[in-house]
Simulated assay, not measured.
Amino acid sequence: MLWDILLLSVFLVGIFNIVFNRLNRHEPGKHSKGEWRRPARGGEVRVIRLVPGRLAEYEVRGAEFSISLWLNLTAAIAALLFWLGLHLQDDRLLAALLAALTLALLAKLHFKVKRETLLVESSLGVQLTTVFASGRRSSLFLARGRLRDLVIAEALTMHQVVTYLALVRRHPDGLVPLFRHTWPRRDQLEPVYRDVQRILSPETAG
Rank of each mutant, 00 (worst) to 15 (best):
V161E: 02
E59L: 14
V162N: 07
E57K: 12
R170M: 12
G14C: 03
T157S: 12
R22N: 12
R170C: 12
L55Q: 10
Q197T: 09
G42N: 06
A76K: 07
L175H: 13
G14E: 05
E35I: 02
F111Q: 07
I15S: 04
Q127L: 06
F20E: 11
D4C: 07
V196P: 02
I18E: 10
L84G: 03
R144C: 01
H181G: 03
L81N: 05
K108Q: 14
Q188D: 00
L103R: 04
T182L: 07
L101M: 14
L109Y: 15
A107N: 10
A40Y: 12
E59W: 10
G53Y: 08
E116G: 03
R169H: 15
I18K: 10
F11D: 02
D173Q: 11
G42K: 10
D90N: 13
A56W: 13
G174A: 06
R146K: 11
G145Y: 08
L6R: 12
A153I: 04
R49T: 02
D195P: 02
F132H: 14
Q197C: 08
N21S: 14
P191N: 01
L147F: 14
E64Y: 13
V196G: 00
V192G: 00
R115F: 12
Y58D: 00
T182R: 05
A166F: 10
V196S: 00
G53D: 02
T129P: 07
A96V: 02
R169F: 10
A166Q: 06
V168H: 05
D90I: 03
P177Y: 09
